[in-house]
Nucleic acid binder design. Sequence first.
DNA 1: CGGCATCCTAGTTGATACTG
DNA 2: CAGTATCAACTAGGATGCCG
Lengths: 141, 141
Amino acid sequence: MASTRRDPSEPATTDYERTCEDGAAGTEHGRAVRDVLDRIGDKWSLLVIGTLRHERRRFTELQRHIPGISQRMLTLTLRQLERDGLITRTVHAEVPPRVEYELTSLGGTLIVHAMALAHWAIENRPQIEAARVAYDSTHAR
Amino acid sequence: MASTRRDPSEPATTDYERTCEDGAAGTEHGRAVRDVLDRIGDKWSLLVIGTLRHERRRFTELQRHIPGISQRMLTLTLRQLERDGLITRTVHAEVPPRVEYELTSLGGTLIVHAMALAHWAIENRPQIEAARVAYDSTHAR
DNA sequence: CGGCATCCTAGTTGATACTG
DNA sequence: CAGTATCAACTAGGATGCCG
């Protein structure tokens, strides 16, 4: 994991600089970026992995911790995250059934960046809000 | 969770650890996170700010650099980014008209995190792809 | 408890045509 | 050149009901 530096044998011109031009369009990199953005950009995924950040959780627990999410969307979100290898789903053979979800190490590396973004959002919200007010006042509603 | 003691006058210490619980739901922080995610999570915004990362660009230039984007969506995306203070729009009084878009410093700080995320996406795509294949094979289509 | 199947709406995007 | 306007298509998401 440790996605610190990329391939040492690459002469440093690679991904990072390319990410925007190359990661832009219909390229492979572009698809990778789009994939991740589609996942964490949707309404609930980030909330789910955020809730799983430290502890593993059961289905209903997650539902309690994420106000407003429907059963359907929680299920769908969990399935996608599981499919992408970001969380694991463990069914315990008990009665009543108990299912636990847990962040994988891959999911753990993702959430670091997601949190950084969230942090940025919180810090810069005042500026964004101000910019909106300014914009709306000059561009008549 | 839900230690909902929200105090408008406590900005800095809190955020990072809270981001997930607190930034989760319908709180102020939650709205900030959602706002940003809605912006960079949409189909084109990240591509646009990525293209503006180094140089300022004209409308048609942007369109050329972002294959597949329609006039309409480019316009809408630019307007939203402008409204949020992430880019500036400069109209030069010439004939034919020339309009240039440029990243603001606020936009510049955002793109750092967005790029980190994009970088993560590129590096971990193989793992995600593998996870999907594994998932799809066990969960019969 | 932890789902899946179905129906349905509201918002987002794309194609197309027209304009200052 | 840099848009705006209109319409059609698609889809994410919510509500509901049933099941192992």
